[in-house]
Amino acid sequence: MVDIIGHIGMGLIWLVVVGWLVYDDRTALGFVALGVPFSLLPDVDLWLSQAFAGVKHHGVVHTVLFVSVAAVAIGAVLGKWVVPWLEDNYISATGVGNRYAYGIGAVFVAGLAHLSADILSAPDIADSIEPFWPLYRQSLGIDVIWYNSPVANWGLFLGGLAFAAALWWQADHDDTRSATRT
Rank of each mutant, 00 (worst) to 15 (best):
D175N: 13
S121F: 04
L86I: 01
L115R: 05
S116N: 05
V44Y: 03
G160T: 02
A117C: 11
G11D: 04
S139F: 05
L41K: 08
A93T: 08
G11M: 06
V32K: 13
I4F: 13
S39T: 12
V18Q: 06
G11W: 09
H57D: 05
F163G: 08
F163N: 08
G30H: 06
E130F: 03
F163D: 03
V77N: 02
I125W: 09
R181K: 13
F163I: 01
Q170H: 15
T63S: 14
R181Q: 14
Y90E: 01
S68H: 09
Y23K: 02
Y102G: 02
V109H: 01
I104G: 06
A53W: 12
A33P: 05
A166I: 07
G54H: 13
Y147R: 14
A53E: 15
N98Y: 01
A179R: 12
S116H: 10
R137I: 06
I125S: 09
G79A: 09
D88S: 12
A110V: 08
L41Q: 03
I125V: 14
S92E: 07
W168D: 01
A126I: 00
F132D: 01
W168G: 00
Q170D: 11
I104L: 11
D3F: 07
D124L: 05
P150Y: 13
A166K: 09
Y147V: 04
W146M: 04
G103I: 03
I13Q: 05
D175Q: 12
L158I: 13
H7E: 07
A51P: 06
I5V: 13
F157S: 06
